[in-house]
C-alpha cells in the first residue's frame, strides 16, 4: 500500500527541484506533529534500550537460573523471569538489538538495491525495465508472508536465511517508487537541458534525479522498518527466525506458547515491545509523509 501511495505524485518535491526546504524547518514541522513526535519518542526509547542494553540490563539475557523460574516482577526482575529463570527485562532490551538491528541493516541494503534497480529501470527502459518491473509486480502483489515462509522454510531457519529473505523481498517497493520518479522527471526541461549540455546518464541520475528520490525513500524506509520488524517477529513466532537462546521478540513469543495459560505475561511483554516499536515507525512514517509530501496523506 505504501508503495502505491508514494508512486502517485512527486510534483511537489520535483517542483522545488534540488532545493529542499531548509532542514531545520522540516524537523521542526515533524516535531510539531504530536503523533509523529510520539512515534519518535517510542523509537528513541527502544533505540537507546538497544544501544545501551549491556548497561541497562541488570542480568545477562542468556543466564539460566533454575532456582528462580517464572518469578513474578520484583526490584531484582522488573518484568519477572521466564521458564528458564532468565530475566525478561534484559531479554526485551537485548531483543531490541536483534529487531532494530536486523531491520536497520536490511533496510540499508534494500535501499541501495531498490534505488539502483529503480534508476536503471527508469533510465534505460526497454526489455530490462519490463523484466525488472515484472519481478517487482509479482513480489509486491503477492502476500509477503507466504514468500517469507517459502524462502526461510526452504533454506532453513536462522539469522542468515531470515536476512536473505528480508532482502530478497523488500527492495521491490523502493524500485517501484524510484522508477516512477525517474519516469516523471526524465523529460523535464531541466533534465533535458542538462542532457543537451552533454551530461551522461550517470551524471543525470546522481545530480538531478537522486536528490528528488530522497524524500519518498525516507518515508518508505520508515514505514518499511515497521514491516521488516513484523516479518522478523512473525518468522520468530513460527520458530523459523533467529534461533532460540537468542532473545529475539518473535522467538520469545514462540517459546512462551507452552506457558500461555499459566504465565501470559511471558507473551505480553515481547508482544508489547514489537507492537510499540512498529507503532513508532508507522507514526513517524505517516508524519514524514505529511511533512514531505502533504498530498499523499489521507483526509485527516
Amino acid at each position: 500500500m505504501a508503495a502505491e501511495m508514494t508512486t502517485e505524485r512527486h510534483e511537489l518535491t520535483a517542483g522545488i527541484g534540488a532545493g529542499q526546504p531548509a532542514r531545520g524547518s522540516l524537523i521542526r514541522r515533524l516535531l510539531r506533529d504530536r503523533l509523529a513526535l510520539g512515534g519518535l519518542v517510542l523509537i528513541t526509547v527502544f533505540g537507546l534500550g538497544a544501544l545501551f542494553a549491556p548497561l541497562l540490563a541488570a542480568h545477562d539475557p542468556l543466564t539460566i537460573d533454575a532456582t528462580n523460574r517464572l518469578a513474578p516482577s520484583s526490584w531484582e526482575h522488573p518484568l519477572g523471569t521466564d521458564q528458564l529463570g532468565r530475566d525478561t527485562f534484559s531479554r526485551i532490551l537485548y531483543g531490541a538489538r536483534w529487531s532494530l538491528g536486523t531491520a536497520a541493516v536490511a533496510t540499508a541494503i534494500v535501499i541501495v538495491i531498490g534505488v539502483a534497480v529503480g534508476l536503471v529501470a527508469g533510465f534505460y527502459g526497454g526489455r530490462l525495465e519490463a523484466l525488472l518491473m515484472w519481478i517487482v509486480d509479482v513480489l509486491l502483489a503477492f502476500p509477503s508472508l507466504v514468500l517469507y515462509l517459502a524462502i526461510v522454510g526452504t533454506l532453513g531457519p536462522g539469522l542468515k536465511n531470515v536476512m536473505i529473505a528480508l532482502i530478497c523481498l523488500s527492495w521491490v517497493a523502493y524500485a517501484r517508487v524510484v522508477r516512477g520518479i525517474v519516469l516523471s522527471m526524465r523529460e523535464r526541461p531541466f533534465v533535458r537541458a542538462s542532457r543537451a549540455l552533454g551530461a551522461g546518464n550517470a551524471r543525470l541520475m546522481v545530480r538531478h534525479i537522486l536528490p528528488n528520490v530522497v524524500p519518498p525513500v525516507v518515508i518508505l524506509a520508515s514505514l518499511q522498518m515497521g514491516g521488516l520488524i513484523l516479518a522478523l517477529a512473525a518468522l520468530g513466532f513460527f520458530g523459523l527466525g533467529v534461533e532460540p537462546p537468542t532473545p529475539e521478540w518473535g522467538t520469545m513469543i514462540n517459546e512462551s506458547r507452552l506457558f500461555l495459560q499459566s504465565e501470559p505475561a511471558l507473551m505480553i511483554w515481547p508482544g508489547l515491545a514489537i507492537s510499540l516499536t512498529v507503532i513508532g515507525f508507522n507514526l513517524v512514517g505517516d508524519g514524514l509523509r505529511d511533512v514531505l509530501d502533504p498530498r499523499l496523506g489521507d483526509h485527516r
Partner: peptide, 10 residues
C-alpha cells in the same frame, strides 16, 4: 494504526 502495527499472532 493498531491494525497496521500489532502482529496478528499477538
Amino acid at each position: 494504526l493498531l491494525g497496521d502495527s500489532v502482529p496478528s499472532f499477538v
